[in-house]
Write a protein that binds this DNA or RNA. Structure first.
Lengths: 334, 334
DNA sequence: TTGTAGGCGTTATCAT
DNA sequence: ATGATAACGCCTACAA
């Protein structure tokens, strides 16, 4: 009826509880003969150590908290799905499971994390959607709750984080387009001030500059909210310019999709590269910068389980991962 | 340092551990005076009952397992995000948390669930992406592990399930279009044999029939894989027909988006309604049938925590929820 | 190499 | 109304 316990296994194998425990936790200390007997009993009974008892005993839940946010209704597709799966997969490799919880806002998130941590339900937490000046890292640090952040706040020296090298992504897009013969390459991004958006703009600008293509291209840097309509509208602006670009680097696939729509409507020629490699990109045959999310997942679990931040000050706390450009038809040389 | 325990609270309040426990679990049995003292101590120490100890004691983890699948790369956007959040939110209301795990396939999923259940890590599991003939429900039933399924397998009498009334969704779309004056309304869906797709086709056909509009509309029922390209191609076929439809009901937003693309390219007039109300629909101003995912989440938690299946045979085990049509510009009357 | 004892934090049972 | 005892299943000493 109830799952078997060490006691049951011990009885079945004719040994004591502790020998069973030893077989599992320190096999070398048990005579092969006895071990075999115990292992057979374990097999036959289908015994699994009770994780709850283990947790109580070890004062460790082997659970990692993760706040699942309501979906942004305007986002055409995000990498959140991929991230969560990658995190779960990375957790499996480290014998950790994810505990999902909800919260009303970042403050509430910290409060819920504290409650879960005090209750012994989680050992730490992974933070997603980090913004500049995000209150969660300092909050959790003060509570001395282990965490790792996906993204940077601007004050990241004191806690573990993992981030994508956004600038490298747009730079790679520019390289690719320059190689394809393009000389006037525009950028369509979201408003200045958003950290991620600014870094993506930086990569574009820097790469252009390295090829001496930056002069007089101020009209080629357009910003707006992250939506299909905005992408569409900004593409109109670009195409209507006397010296229009021949290629566009977009800060997101959503913006890129908007650009593509205008391009198709006007039968214009304009190479486009997006960012994030969402399913939308695949569907539209849109070249896109792909974030190495699986690697991020592993890095975050490692960062979280690694040395406690603050204990060895001065150590590197962060990790920057390079994205990869996926080339599709939208940026094929004419 | 370590979180406070009942012991600490008891000491602080000058009572025994059990009185503290009583204050929390049977307040009426404690003298108001004492209770107040204990509650103050709890407050001051920030005491939270240790969930792990509670679980060990109660032989219940208050955790619900959920397998997170890798994202389908071709899906333009799915309701999975919404579903997972809804489930977590519903769980919160019932003092349950979700434990995420991964698996290679349905078989592996059942095996992992069994392991987690034996280990006391989860009390039950929620099944997503149910297919006809899905092996998971019978597998879990045999293992006597509580579960609830989102969707139906075709043999659902013996376990709790929650499903969307897919036929009602497409029927509502047809009603809407008929009201708008349309007489030739096509259906674009995925191949026959897929249960969900067939039900959506059924709703379309039934509603058309009720209005006497079904005659000679065989050429208006087209199927293909769920992709943008397919939607696009099938729209071409429809528009090229001597008596083309004036409206289309699509089985998914992805297919609908493909239809829309063709419509725009050819400057054709064709009302379109999609299914799932994904972010894509919002971005394209596409009317779409919205699944009541939040309600599904609550229903599933209730179903899971409800009476154990099989104990009271003959009871209704399932629940069918009606979707809602979201009207946008794509189906506006001409 | 194997067994005995104790305790992780909680709560139900039973006494006072 | 409150307190002592025991048990959930496991594991880390320590003892034999």
């Amino acid at each position: 009826m109830h799952p078997p316990t060490v006691e049951d296994v011990a009885r079945a194998a004719g040994v004591s509880r502790q020998t069973v425990s030893n077989v599992l936790n320190a096999p070398q200390r048990v005579r092969p003969e006895t071990r075999a007997r115990v292992e057979t009993a374990i097999e036959q009974l289908g015994y699994r150590p009770n994780r709850v008892a283990q947790s109580l005993r070890a004062a460790t839940s082997r659970m990692i908290g993760y706040r699942i946010e309501p979906m942004h209704p305007h986002a055409l597709g995000s990498i959140h799905d991929r991230f969560l799966h990658a995190l779960a997969e990375a957790g499996r490799a480290a014998d950790r499971h994810l505990l999902l919880f909800t919260a009303d806002d970042p403050q509430d998130e910290v409060a819920n994390v504290q409650a879960l941590h005090r209750a012994g339900a989680i050992d730490g937490v992974v933070l997603y959607g980090i913004q500049s000046g995000d209150p969660r890292p300092p909050g959790l640090r003060q509570l001395r709750i282990p965490f790792a952040a996906f993204g940077r706040t601007g004050a990241d020296a004191e806690h573990p984080w993992v981030d994508i090298d956004n600038a490298a992504g747009t730079a790679a897009a520019v390289e690719h387009l320059v190689t394809g013969g393009h000389r006037r390459i525009a950028f369509v991004g979201y408003p200045q001030g958003a950290a991620v958006g600014d870094r993506r703009a930086d990569g574009w600008r820097t790469a252009l500059d390295q090829h001496g293509l930056l002069d007089g291209s101020h009209h080629l840097d357009l910003r707006g909210e992250d939506s299909l309509a905005t992408g569409s509208r900004l593409a109109e602006v670009l195409l209507d310019h006397p010296t229009p670009p021949t290629a566009v680097v977009a800060a997101t696939d959503t913006l890129a999709a908007g650009v593509l729509r205008t391009v198709r409507q006007r039968h214009a020629r304009l190479a486009v590269v997006g960012f994030d490699d969402t399913p939308t990109a695949g569907a539209l045959d849109l070249s896109s910068v792909r974030q190495p999310i699986e690697a991020v997942g592993h890095a975050m679990i490692r960062a979280l389980l690694g040395p406690v931040p603050g204990e060895t000050p001065g150590e590197p706390t962060g990790q920057l991962l390079a994205p990869e450009l996926i080339v599709r038809a939208s940026s094929a040389p004419h």
